[in-house]
Nucleic acid binder design. Structure first.
Length: 213
DNA sequence: CCCTGATTCGC
DNA sequence: GCGAATCAGG
């Protein structure tokens, strides 16, 4: 069969689409091809995104092609100022409580990391994945990334520059509910999170000077 | 070449 | 309805 396209998938498609993510990116996150994404989006009727091209079907008057330089990734972030890098009290993400507080089995991406070291292996907030029993964890994506790179096979060597995800894995919204999604912003090199969320995920060790020596 | 989205058309 | 194939611009 082709694809489920359940209410939830469609909801996620809509959401990601609205976030301005590229079709390919959405496809990766939804585990479908960009074609599927485009096709579905087209059928759904949503599609006011800037297109890189304007196909001239017939005698359509060539409209001015809007800018398409950077439609995807980070359209809303940027407010993150380095000045805050002092006491990351890491309160839950403004949008949800899923990521941060879960000391039970899922050490928060902040405090827990601090106890160990300079945050080498941060526990991803994706621990939410445990809670959401229906979402493909971000961790599942790397496999896709490799799989979806046919040309990579032609290259025996070459370092896959995208070791971690191409998009921030920080969960936003309530897992299991329509609208839930991962941040999707451009992550820091080697990190699964964007600059903004990396600050929440990685806590500096320097500030815990009141214990240990 | 890479990326992007758009459309077509067999299924 | 679905999405691979194909097209086409940056």
């Amino acid at each position: 069969m082709a694809m489920e396209w359940t209410e939830e998938t469609i909801a996620r498609l809509r959401d990601l689409w609205q976030q301005g993510l590229s079709t390919a990116e959405i496809g990766r996150q939804l585990s479908v091809t960009k074609n599927a994404v485009v096709g579905k989006a087209h059928r759904l009727g949503l599609k006011p995104r800037p297109s890189p091209i304007r196909r001239a079907p017939k005698g359509a008057p060539a409209e001015a092609v809007a800018d398409t330089s950077a439609p995807a990734a980070v359209t809303e972030s940027a407010p993150v100022a380095p000045s805050v890098a002092k006491e990351e009290t890491v309160s839950a993400p403004v949008v949800s409580r899923a990521p941060a507080p879960q000391p039970e089995k899922a050490p928060a991406p902040s405090t827990a990391a601090a106890t160990v070291s300079t945050a080498t292996q941060p526990t991803s907030p994706a621990s939410a994945g445990d809670a959401l029993t229906s979402e493909p964890e971000p961790a599942a994506r790397p496999a896709r990334s490799q799989a979806r790179a046919p040309r990579s096979a032609l290259r025996p060597v070459s370092e896959p520059r995208r070791r971690s995800s191409q998009s921030c894995c920080w969960p936003l919204g309530d897992p299991g509910t329509p609208g839930f999604h991962f941040c999707g912003a451009t992550p820091l090199p080697g990190k699964p999170y964007c600059a903004e969320h990396a600050q929440l995920a990685y806590v500096k060790l320097r500030d815990r000077r009141d214990n240990v020596a």
